[in-house]
Amino acid sequence: ETIMEVNLLKGPKGLGFSIAGGIGNQHIPGDNSIYITKIIEGGAAQKDGRLQIGDRLLAVNNTNLQDVRHEEAVASLKNTSDMVYLKVAKP
């Protein structure tokens, strides 16, 4: 597993990826991690090219996303300014 830091500039459609996982909404049984499950065509993440489906999202800005509820992860992604710092684990 490789840890990678990505600074992503939000586009008109936001960050351009979808997530799944978290406490109460496990993407993988027994694993509370938050995973990237979709990269949106023409979105910021696709244009940047570094994020991939299956990457594990560890942090957004200063918010640690390990062992959080799905709703908390979504809220932390929404409550960001235009430049967003992401910390991901690549499988």
Rank of each mutant, 00 (worst) to 15 (best):
E1I: 15
E1L: 06
E1Q: 03
E1C: 05
T2C: 09
T2H: 07
I3E: 05
I3P: 04
I3A: 05
I3S: 05
I3W: 05
I3C: 05
M4H: 06
M4A: 11
M4V: 06
M4P: 01
M4S: 05
E5D: 14
E5R: 12
E5Y: 08
E5I: 15
V6S: 02
N7C: 05
L8W: 03
L8D: 00
L8C: 03
L9H: 11
G11I: 06
G11T: 14
G11F: 04
P12S: 06
P12L: 08
P12G: 10
P12I: 07
K13M: 07
L15P: 07
L15E: 01
G16H: 00
G16P: 01
S18F: 06
I19L: 12
I19T: 08
I19S: 03
A20S: 11
A20G: 13
A20R: 08
A20F: 05
G21Q: 04
G21F: 02
I23P: 05
G24K: 14
G24P: 09
Q26F: 05
Q26T: 14
Q26I: 06
I28Y: 12
I28G: 07
P29N: 15
G30V: 03
G30S: 13
G30C: 13
G30E: 08
G30R: 10
D31K: 05
D31T: 06
D31E: 13
N32E: 08
S33V: 03
S33C: 12
I34G: 00
I34H: 03
I34W: 03
Y35N: 02
Y35I: 15
Y35W: 06
I36P: 00
I36G: 00
I36V: 15
I36Q: 01
I36E: 00
I36D: 01
T37A: 13
K38Y: 06
K38G: 14
I39T: 04
I39H: 01
I39R: 01
I40C: 10
I40W: 07
E41K: 13
E41C: 06
E41P: 13
E41N: 14
G42V: 02
G43S: 14
A44F: 05
A44M: 12
A45G: 04
Q46C: 12
K47V: 08
K47Q: 08
D48C: 07
G49V: 02
G49E: 05
G49I: 02
R50D: 09
R50Y: 04
R50H: 15
R50A: 10
Q52V: 11
Q52A: 07
Q52S: 14
I53G: 12
I53E: 10
G54Q: 05
G54R: 05
G54C: 04
D55I: 03
L57E: 00
L57T: 01
L58E: 12
L58P: 00
A59W: 15
A59F: 09
V60S: 03
V60C: 08
V60D: 01
T63D: 04
T63S: 14
T63Q: 09
T63Y: 04
T63P: 00
N64W: 08
N64D: 15
L65P: 00
L65S: 01
L65D: 00
Q66W: 11
Q66L: 06
Q66C: 08
D67A: 07
D67I: 05
D67F: 10
V68G: 11
V68R: 10
R69S: 15
H70S: 06
H70Y: 14
H70Q: 08
E72P: 03
E72R: 09
E72A: 14
A73G: 07
A73F: 03
A73V: 10
A73C: 06
S76Y: 14
S76P: 02
S76D: 11
L77A: 01
L77M: 14
K78H: 15
K78I: 03
K78Q: 12
N79R: 14
T80C: 11
T80Y: 03
T80K: 12
T80V: 12
T80S: 13
S81G: 10
D82P: 14
D82C: 04
M83A: 11
M83S: 13
M83K: 10
M83H: 15
V84R: 01
V84L: 13
Y85R: 10
Y85G: 11
Y85N: 10
K87M: 12
K87Y: 04
K87N: 09
V88Y: 03
V88F: 04
K90Y: 06
P91N: 15
P91I: 07
P91R: 03
P91M: 05
